[in-house]
Amino acid sequence: MNATIEILGKELAIDADGNLVNLEDWNEEIAKAIAKEEGIEELTQKHWQVINFMRKVFAEKEDSPSIRKLTKESGVDTKELYALFPKGPAKKAARIAGLPKPKGCI
């Protein structure tokens, strides 16, 4: 279980979902590279708003926020979340934010 991914010339450890294992491996350039891999060509200010909110919540609670928490507290509503991160906002945004996949069902 020592999977790695090569991003910007660095070998970074990833978990079974392909998310970064070490929080300190993450930076904005890495985020942009992961986003590209997820089909998001450019991270807009709204994307960053979600990513930064997720990192803030994770730092406090050690779990990535649910889609409901994102909807209620990130300042970006459900429709927009799905438009920004198609095919699964909570999961995709967590991956781009260098966090594990959210554990909750909601």
Binding site: I67, R68, T78, Y82, I106
Partner: peptide, 14 residues
Amino acid sequence: DIPPVREFIEMIHD
């Protein structure tokens, strides 16, 4: 974080 029915329906539709 499971919302009340009305909020949940809105979220799911959105």
